[in-house]
Amino acid sequence: MKNYLALPLPALMFLGALVSSASAETKRPAPQPICTSLSIDCVVSQNSGYDNGLYPYGVPTIFGWYAGGPAATGNGAPPSDFLALTGWGQIYPQVGASNVAANVYLKDYRVYVHLTSGGWQLVQDQAMNSVAGGHYVADFSNDSSSPMSLVVQPDGSARMASPASGHNDHFWIFPRGSYTPGTVDGVFSIAQLRTDNARANLIANFGADWWRSASAPYLNQDGVFVNNPAVGMGAWVKLTTTYQYFFFTTMTKSQLQAEPPPPLK
């Protein structure tokens, strides 16, 4: 077996985007968006900003992404001089449920950008790229983390251990995906996840960061991610022992219907 490199990614994301716990609680609850087949409706269900009643253990309730993120805003253009991005995911123990140790398997993770001229460009693909990550402190305070092994399985999936209470599994594809500046106005990613323990209470979501270039260093100045502003993140979804699809997109339902990304055609 080959181990994926566990390189630190200091770039998470939204720690400055705070809301009151009261405002998070007033979001309209939505059914759990479990997606075992491919459809635009499933994509939208995970990217519409609804509070699904699933919350990540150890994340302060005042954090804007405590209840998940509204990704599909229809406005996914990067800064005009940026030319790279990275897809990422995160897995947490569920608030109010027991945290039983398990393994988690990630497969078929792909990230696409939508071109202003029309069409989609595949910029990251687990089958051709690598996956790295770490067990980060749940609120990402001080960018503290411990190593996390990601082991390639015979089917090409990556196996990782579930996070301990107070931590997460945060993973990303590398190298960064590249595109021509000024040609991108949206993002779509797709992956499959499962756990091997039916008693594990784990939730996950996916997102992405823009990067200034394929090699720009992480730079946080007064709480501003100078070289890697966040694109967004999707809803929390509970893992099961069978693979299910996880989606992240900045595109609205009507945009996806007008020009479906390749996995949905």
Rank of each mutant, 00 (worst) to 15 (best):
P261F: 01
A158F: 10
L83C: 13
T242M: 00
V152E: 13
G49V: 07
S45N: 09
G74D: 06
Y179T: 03
A235W: 05
E259P: 02
P229K: 03
V231S: 06
M1H: 05
A22V: 08
M148K: 08
R212P: 00
A127P: 00
L264H: 01
T73Q: 11
Q257S: 00
T180I: 12
P181Y: 11
G177D: 05
R199W: 02
G96E: 00
A158C: 00
Y218K: 02
L83F: 10
Q153E: 14
F14E: 13
V59F: 07
A258C: 03
T180A: 14
L106N: 08
S165H: 03
T241V: 14
N99A: 04
Q257K: 13
Y50E: 15
L9H: 15
M233S: 14
T241I: 11
L122A: 04
G64Q: 09
R212W: 06
P8W: 08
T242Y: 07
A71C: 02
N220K: 09
P217K: 11
F206V: 14
A235F: 06
W65P: 09
W172N: 14
E259D: 03
T242C: 00
G96M: 12
T86H: 09
V44C: 09
L38I: 12
D209P: 02
F246R: 01
L264G: 01
W120D: 04
G87E: 12
P8L: 03
S146A: 11
V237Q: 11
G76P: 07
G119S: 06
A200S: 09
N197D: 06
C42A: 08
Q244Y: 07
